[in-house]
């Protein structure tokens, strides 16, 4: 699908791509530095050039591939779900930043250094490319523009990005929200589900709230009091429960709408849908309380002394 140039849809997709590029940019400069730190000076210059070139090349190949992969039925849904996980991971507070296991050991040869840089960039760029592919809605021009934005970030823009997100951490929250929104649009655009969503329009709203409640949970769980923390699990679980009945109704041709129910079985099913989750939620809260109490007892009990 080609978007009209400079239309609101086009500019919005471009803005989405820029935001995704900003918040999901990989730390290529650090990786190149770590990989090349033990190499001789003259080899280091070559490694920096070819490593950067290889990183850009692999990013371009992945961006082109993702457009074709997302056109395959089923992959749009998988990509949308993956974006939800990426958004959640983006918003989860980090203790200490870990160095990728790919670059813990410095390279000893030129070839090994370039290979490590390219593999590390490919691993780090998967989420970025997936987000761009989802936001571009199949437009090759937007993919190219996405690359045109991400390449300067890879090569020169790292300090600028760090300064921006350090000054305005809300950019990260906005990035998480935009990723969740992109994930939602990918899920509802999935060719295998379009007909189903047309028959179940309310499910779209449930899916939207489910996606936002999962991907933004690190954010709102920070603002919830201890008593309300279980909502982080209960709200998405309840939405999945409701959605499961809609899906089951379609798969097994059951009537899950109480206004249209005819037999006692259908009324029972409807009752299970609206009330059945309450014992499960109570069980979860009880198990959680038990777990917290046991952890507190273990923390306060004196350490065991081994007698000889």
């Amino acid at each position: 699908m080609e978007l009209e140039l400079f239309s609101t849809a086009f500019l919005s997709a471009l803005l989405t791509i820029i935001l995704i590029d900003l918040v999901l940019a990989g730390d290529n400069a650090l990786i190149i530095g770590l990989v090349a730190r033990n190499l001789p000076k003259e080899t280091q210059t070559k490694v920096i050039f070819w490593g950067t070139f290889g990183a850009i090349f692999i990013r371009a190949v992945m961006a082109i591939l993702v457009v074709y992969i997302l056109a395959v039925p089923g992959f749009m849904l998988a990509g949308g779900v993956a974006l939800v996980w990426i958004a959640r991971k983006l918003l989860t507070p980090e203790g200490n930043s870990e160095t990728s296991s790919l670059v813990k050991a410095p390279a000893v040869t030129f070839g090994a250094a370039v290979r490590t840089i390219v593999i590390a960039d490919a691993v780090m760029g998967v989420d970025n490319v997936l987000g761009i592919g989802g936001a571009a809605q199949g437009s090759i021009l937007l993919i190219v523009l996405g690359l045109a934005v991400s390449v300067p970030i890879i090569v020169w823009g790292s300090q600028l990005v760090i300064k921006l997100v350090d000054r305005y951490p809300s950019v990260i929250l906005l990035g998480g929200a935009v990723l969740a929104w992109t994930g939602y649009t990918m899920v509802v655009r999935e060719p295998l589900l379009i007909t189903w969503f047309e028959g179940h329009p309310a499910a779209k709203l449930v899916v939207a709230i489910l996606i936002f409640s999962i991907s933004l949970s690190p954010w709102y769980s920070e603002r919830l009091s201890t008593e309300l923390k279980p909502l982080v699990v209960l709200l998405p679980a309840l939405l999945v429960w409701m959605l499961a009945f809609e899906v089951a109704g379609s798969l097994w041709k059951m009537q899950v709408d109480y206004l249209l129910a005819t037999g006692p079985g259908e009324y029972l099913l409807e009752a299970l849908r609206w009330v059945g989750w309450i014992p499960l939620a109570a069980l979860f809260l009880w198990a959680r309380e038990q777990f917290i109490a046991r952890a507190a007892r273990r923390a306060t009990s004196p350490p065991l002394r081994l007698s000889r």
Binding site: P93, P169, I172, L173
Partner: peptide, 19 residues
């Protein structure tokens, strides 16, 4: 290893964000 994790404030954006 995301670039934003080089900034402590950005890595903990949900805590450091302004009102």
């Amino acid at each position: 290893m995301l670039l934003i994790h080089r900034s402590q404030r950005a890595a903990n954006a949900v805590r450091a964000v302004s009102a």
